[in-house]
């Protein structure tokens, strides 16, 4: 088990290297650069633009820029943001914490809602099943940014006294901070909850038709025991996989949700950095996001072994 974990962690390194190269090349392949993007239609001479590029090191060959970035990144220095002229790492850490919190809140909401509706539709069937499946189809058809915009407009129009843009850092006001995460969390969680709900339902239905469940029922075990020890635990494996995969969706969704709810997280930072072609910032964000997704994948594998006795990595 330990060997597997160590091996998987070691494997993430070449993947991260690959991701950083792809991000680096892709961003530079896009037309327009920071000098131009930040100037917009402002009158600026081509000479001044070239000088700006030289000052930022953008005149050097791409591979040279990449190696210089890599050398610094390996020593823990992610460079200086073009836009804010501050170290990227210093900008990134607090924003990452905010996005991590939002993702966790939304993830918990999605799991609770998806798990509950999935379980209900699988066990209660009948009308409940149709209500849940209708609800899920509706959510699947409405993207999270629509939900978020509607929430923002609804509160702005009908409940203007309820502040929805009251983001405060956790350290200053923990309760206020959690409260400010509720609406963005729901907006982000709804779509993701559908996937979890449908997978939970399918997994439970599949497990429920297994012989051992019938035997358990024949033995006269209580419904609660069957649900907990037979259905729940066996149905959990696919649900965990899906939940892990959905983390990437949550991270992606946070770009829109943070922008709409003006939460100073990594998503909004990425949005700004891509629009202004702030290469060092984009590079840093991509690296952090890739690391998180890879680590979650490792964590999902470990979780398999914990819930499913058949899975062994030794």
């Amino acid at each position: 088990m330990m060997r597997m974990v160590a091996l998987r962690l070691l494997l993430t390194l070449p993947i991260l290297l690959g991701v950083s190269i792809v991000a680096f090349v892709l961003m530079r392949a896009l037309p327009g650069d920071f000098a131009q993007a930040s100037a917009g239609t402002t009158t600026i001479s081509p000479e001044a633009l070239d000088q700006l590029r030289r000052n930022l090191g953008l005149d050097r060959p791409v591979w040279e820029q990449y190696l210089a970035w890599l050398a610094r990144a390996l020593s823990g220095d992610l460079g200086t943001s073009f836009a804010t002229k501050r170290p990227v790492l210093g900008e990134l850490v607090p924003r990452f914490m905010v996005t991590a919190e939002l993702t966790l809140v939304a993830g918990a909401m999605a799991l609770a809602l998806g798990g509950a509706t999935g379980l209900a539709s699988a066990r209660l069937r009948g009308r409940v099943e149709w209500i849940v499946r209708g609800w899920n189809s509706l959510l699947l058809a409405v993207p999270n940014f629509v939900v978020a915009t509607l929430v923002v407009l609804l509160f702005g129009l009908y409940f203007p006294t309820i502040g929805i843009f009251n983001y405060v850092p956790f350290a200053t006001d923990p309760l206020g901070n959690l409260a400010s995460m509720v609406l963005p969390g729901i907006s982000l969680a709804l779509t993701v909850s559908v996937t979890i709900s449908e997978n939970t339902r399918a997994a439970i239905l599949e497990v429920a038709s297994q012989d051992y469940v019938m035997v358990a029922r024949a033995k006269g075990l209580s419904r609660g025991t069957i649900l907990r020890d037979y259905l729940g635990r066996n149905a959990l494996t696919p649900v965990i996989t899906v939940a892990g995969l959905q983390l990437a969706a949550l991270l992606g969704g946070s770009i829109l949700i943070e922008t709409i709810f003006t939460i100073p997280g990594m998503g909004q930072y990425l949005f700004d950095s891509v629009t202004t072609r702030d290469y060092p910032a984009i590079q840093g964000i991509v690296l952090v996001a890739a690391t998180v997704v890879l680590l979650v994948n490792v964590a999902v594998d470990i979780a398999y072994a914990r819930v499913d006795a058949r899975v062994s990595y030794d």
Partner: peptide, 15 residues
């Protein structure tokens, strides 16, 4: 407020 809808809501709610 990067989003115009958010900006509108913020003005209405006197944020």
């Amino acid at each position: 407020f990067k989003d115009q809808a958010s900006l509108t809501s913020a003005l209405r709610s006197r944020a």
